[in-house]
Design a protein around this nucleic acid. Structure first.
Lengths: 218, 218
DNA sequence: GACAAACACGAGCGGTCGCTCGCATTCTAA
DNA sequence: TTAGAATGCGAGCGACCGCTCGTGTTTGTC
């Protein structure tokens, strides 16, 4: 065991260096956004940031590290924002109200951080990022599961998980439609995907409120 | 398909050549599927097909042409299958019945052709394919719009389009969830996404007047 | 069998990529 | 002031990419 596991040498970084890193990450966000991970060249990222390739490699060991740092930053931000959004749901509110406020908050965040959506949806991203994203997705599923479980007390775990997955899937596909629109049209689409979710969930809740067990599907 | 309508030089092709083309397209489907378009190397495709790079270029002018031919073949197949599925919908049936049979057919097809889904969803595909796919998507939207319009007679065009887009979006996200499952779990997810669509559409239909949609005109 | 066309090969060309390295410049601490 | 660390540069290395080309083999036709 020659060296400690994660923490490296105390590589002191000057203010200039911090600025460069931020600059490079922003440039990387742009380039990854427009060309995808594989097609983005490190030289292009350096050029976009207005520095030389050598400078880029002063701060990142390799191309993957750039994407990993960028995405983990975005995911951390998203985990905080979305986690908070899903956590402060009023459990006594109606399904319609919960959906309404929650969807508004989630969409608001994503509209303000379009890089995230663009970066994470490529099929050519390195494994590290895919894993992180899977973990993020999983944690969101779990939070939604908690919400669903609160609305469907006593429902089988498999049912709760399925409902949560479907809700997230509907939300994601709606997000894509919403992001492709603007103004009034965008609002109409937001309204529409809320309706989809509300109409999907309300019958489930009603069925469960009367003490009737699992939905009579299959 | 013995000849091309707007063909070029009369490049006669022997049976061996036809076999090679099919072999190469299949290999390309595999490689594109697993690595995406950009990361897939023509050498790898040739190797997968068991031929030399030179042989590959005997039959395709460049890498893009391979992807274009492969995808246009898949899209043609899909257009036929899905077009037929959406065309032979019984306009007198209930929303629930229409959704039930239609979703079953669409999902059946996609389960049998997983390459398509994998190939077309990359962000790094060449422009030609993206255009073709957009055209395919558009034609599907239009068919769904026709269906929706039949169920919502007199609804504004913008509303009909939005409903159609949302339906397709929900279907696609459901497809992703379904393809990631197997057996009984898959069936449960299929049932679930049908429910989402039915519960979304039924109130719209009822709201628009008579429960019986556009009767067979005259 | 003779001949041309189609088919097959694989070394290698020109190019881009991720990344390195030697060296110049700027900052910080003593 | 000055040593040395941090920052910055950019030509260029090695690897791999899409693709070519000279050459040899198979196939169809006479």
């Amino acid at each position: 065991m020659p060296d400690n596991p994660q923490s490296e040498q105390p590589r002191r970084r000057q203010a200039r260096g911090e600025r460069r890193v931020a600059q490079l990450l922003e440039a990387a966000a742009n380039v990854f956004c427009t060309t995808g991970y594989t097609a983005a060249s490190t030289n292009a990222i350096a050029r976009e940031a207005g520095v030389s390739p050598g400078t880029l490699y002063q701060f990142f060991p390799n191309k993957e590290a750039i994407a990993v740092e960028l995405s983990s930053k975005l995911m951390h931000e998203m985990r905080e924002s979305h986690g908070e959004t899903l956590a402060l749901v009023d459990p006594a509110a109606s399904v319609a109200d919960v959906i309404d406020t929650t969807i508004d908050r989630l969409i608001d965040f994503t509209c303000r951080r379009p890089e995230f959506f663009a970066l994470v949806h490529g099929p050519d991203i390195p494994g590290r990022i895919a894993e992180e994203h899977d973990a993020l997705h999983l944690s969101m599923v779990q939070r939604v599961e908690e919400l669903v479980a609160a609305f469907l007390p006593g429902a089988p775990r498999a049912d709760v998980e399925r409902v949560a997955q479907v809700c997230l899937g509907v939300y994601k596909s709606g997000l894509e439609l919403v992001l492709a629109r603007e103004g009034a049209e965008r609002d109409a689409y937001v309204r529409e995907i809320k309706d989809v979710l509300i109409r999907y969930l309300e019958p489930l809740v009603e069925q469960h409120g009367s003490g009737t067990p699992a939905p009579a599907t299959h």
